[in-house]
Design a protein around this nucleic acid. Sequence first.
DNA 1: TTGAAAGCGATACCAC
DNA 2: GTGGTATCGCTTTCAA
Lengths: 354, 354
Amino acid sequence: MKPTLQAVADAVGVSRSTVSNAYSRPDQLSAALRERILDAARQLGYPGPNPTARSLRRGFVGSIGVLFTSQLSYAFTDPFAVRFLAGVGEAAERHGTSMLLVPLPQAQTDARRAVENAAVDGFCVYCVADEEWALDVIRARGLPYVSTAPRDDAGADERFVGIDERAAAYSAAAHVAGLGHRRVALLADAVLPDAPAGPLTLSGPQEVWHPTTRGRLTGFADAFAEVGVDWAGLTLLNAPGNSRRAAAAAVAGLFDGPAPPTAVLAGSDVLALGVLDVLAQRSDGPVPPVSVTGFDDVPEAAAAGLTTVRQPAKEKGRIAAELLLDPPADAAANHVLLPTALVVRTSTGPVPRS
Amino acid sequence: MKPTLQAVADAVGVSRSTVSNAYSRPDQLSAALRERILDAARQLGYPGPNPTARSLRRGFVGSIGVLFTSQLSYAFTDPFAVRFLAGVGEAAERHGTSMLLVPLPQAQTDARRAVENAAVDGFCVYCVADEEWALDVIRARGLPYVSTAPRDDAGADERFVGIDERAAAYSAAAHVAGLGHRRVALLADAVLPDAPAGPLTLSGPQEVWHPTTRGRLTGFADAFAEVGVDWAGLTLLNAPGNSRRAAAAAVAGLFDGPAPPTAVLAGSDVLALGVLDVLAQRSDGPVPPVSVTGFDDVPEAAAAGLTTVRQPAKEKGRIAAELLLDPPADAAANHVLLPTALVVRTSTGPVPRS
DNA sequence: TTGAAAGCGATACCAC
DNA sequence: GTGGTATCGCTTTCAA
């Protein structure tokens, strides 16, 4: 039998309250008594108050949850997600709070259960594609949360940290349009749930499933509409899973037709790098005939010479956690929009003459 | 006031037990009653049983803790740690268990407290340098744990997953020795606690503080002893923090003396890459005159052409978590030694004639 | 300063 | 199949 607080109390000959105070409110008893109690505890092998019991009684846990749409291992594989987590970790560390990473099972019911059962004081909701059900559970539990994906029906008081997805994407597309490109493919993750890798037809970007992807594709479309290329004139490609492999699968055969695109705008760097992989394998010479842009500016992007939109990943995580851990009194400050910047490298260039 | 299980029971006109059963043991009541209860719960906005209360009563939490020596943000910055975490995540996911990342404050007392207060069912102890105190707390709490660093006093029954550090390091050093190198520097993290970046004098590798580092340096030393270079003939460099920057600081001025080393053996890829950074800045021509080896074979190593010792990072994490989540009945199977392999790339070559 | 008593919110055993 | 009842281990007024 593991010793409990009671056992320590009995050993010393004081009440439970006093032992409790020895741990949690040292100022409530004499230093000498406290020492006696701590000594007895050591002797008995009492490891201090049981965290679960303490949490129950106190009403808070001392940890925040991070929710991912996809596999937990994805969180550690995707460079953007990793930097986001680094930011959350930094803030958590400063506050002496732990981070709970909650895996969401495939089955909706189980996933719900997972959110219901997480012992946390609040959630950072990272890019949950169809996050409404999760937010419902969190709200029902009365827990605070911070979301990082734009939501149409977000209340004004909802804590949020993110970027202007549309404007950011627009900047990349405008750059490419300015270089003269008109035959363009858009490549993104989670365009529609469960759609396979490859071309997809949608009547407009507003039909895109994932809100982040929707925002970015809207920005791309807007920029090309301004130079006379409407939505129907753009090739839309779905790359489920946001991996290099998915990107490669999505663009398979893309460049083999009679009038292949001269540029590919990707919704993430990982996807863009996948496209560069494919292009490199075609060994089309030193100057790539296809311009490619990414999104995020992950560390790998620089080495690959990828033109991309930079967003402060770690900062995003840090602010998300801080918004959760000590929310600003000012309501407006609970909605943080981070700056982005177009980073032009070598993966984009003028349309090759043919 | 948030609704409790009691409230639902009252609303439906049944006892608490029945409501509890509706959630946790559906087979204990009629489907119809269960539906009625769940409906009432929905109506009242009852989010399901409180996780903390449930954990207290049931005696387990449903999450495992991961302990890091250093900053939590380090865990997400170091490529090896990230892959380790990915492995833990994979196993956790499969078991429907959450992962709790526990930041350890600088102050010993606070760090102890953090381990005492973590609401988990067990710990993966990742490379805690001076981990004895942490293991003490964990044992006092009666929790299972898996360690990944070799420990001299590890009981035979202690769960462990790791590699033969000495033998792995030996293979790299033997390779370099075989190439003819005799003036060699050894570069490692945590050689001594709190030692600054740069040269260090120790009477032998057994004095090294961190057990992992100790194992690796011993392997390096052994290989060179065999070709007639004893410990005193090797230059030992400390690079606290295991970062590229630390490596750069540690090797500052190293190559400017009259008889600079022709090879640097690093205790990790990150450090080795830092050395390559420094060498690249010296722009000593296309064929580097200094051979460099790393350890781990992180993704970045391949691109850099780094000769290194590969160890299965993700596997290590996965197995650590599995050892924790369902330990094999066979005691011997609780001690897992993973294979390593020397990966020779372009960063090592014969000693340049001078 | 110290201690007695009342929960925190749920689960599980055991009768009915 | 259902409902009492004890209990999980601790914190926290409040009175002594």
